[in-house]
Write a protein that binds this DNA or RNA. Structure first.
Length: 211
DNA sequence: GGTACGATAAACT
DNA sequence: GTTTATCGTACCA
């Protein structure tokens, strides 16, 4: 198993290629994770929800490593993270994209607007919807039912890195290249800078746009 | 191919 | 009252 008590930056590469499954009355959906972002702890990373310390929303981020931190954002979306660092410290890995490997039919039902199968779990809110993860599952263990998390057979040898997507740092500049993805995967979400970011754009090697 | 914008609510100032 | 770890649609090239 992955040692989630390490910090999110260390854990992130081990999640690429891992398979996360979620069971529900409707059935099982599993994704092979292809894209993640690391968020660090209190006072360290201005883009992190934990930056200003513990709050009601972020409580689980300060809790046991290896659990789910899910939160509601933009008035309509849920995003899912894997909690890292020892209890009492906060860091987490945001799951941003993956390839459905089990339950494609159910994922299609949950994501009726997806044009093709590789967009079913492309983007953090889409991934959550495809898996059927609910906001109320915040704090759940990811290694026992209804969840399941299988590490990759071997750690990815080719990992691409870029700035995080949609994050604004001081002055609108996101300084941290803490987004990790498997190059060439069509299930990696397109890079988008924060709306308030300046023109200093860094696109990384974002592939995945395909045809 | 890209860029703009509205939806919609919790958290934060 | 402002911001936000987003998505889908509309529009322009």
């Amino acid at each position: 198993m992955i040692d989630f008590s390490a910090d999110a930056l260390e854990v992130a590469p081990f999640l690429l290629g891992a398979v996360l499954s979620h069971d529900s009355p409707e059935g099982v959906v599993a994704v092979r994770i292809t894209e993640v972002e690391a968020y660090l702890g209190e006072g360290v990373d201005p883009g992190s929800h934990a930056f200003r310390g513990r709050s009601k929303r972020t409580a689980s981020m300060f809790g046991e490593p290896g659990r789910l931190y899910s939160y509601f954002t933009y008035g309509m979306h849920v995003c899912a993270n894997v909690v890292c660092s020892p209890q009492g410290e906060a860091s987490a890995v945001l799951l941003r994209g993956g390839e459905i490997v089990i339950g494609t039919d159910l994922a299609r039902v949950r994501r009726p607007t997806a044009r093709s199968d590789h967009t079913l779990a492309r983007g953090p809110a889409n991934l959550v919807r495809a898996l059927g993860i609910a906001l109320g599952e915040d704090g759940s263990r990811l290694d026992v039912a209804p969840f399941g998390l299988v590490p990759p057979a071997s750690v990815a040898t080719e990992v691409a890195v870029s700035l995080r997507t949609g994050v604004s740092g001081a002055g609108g500049v996101e300084p941290f290249a803490w987004r990790f993805f498997l190059p060439g995967e069509p299930t990696v979400s397109p890079y988008k800078r924060h709306p308030k970011a300046g023109s200093a754009d860094f696109r990384g090697d974002t592939p995945g746009m395909q045809a």
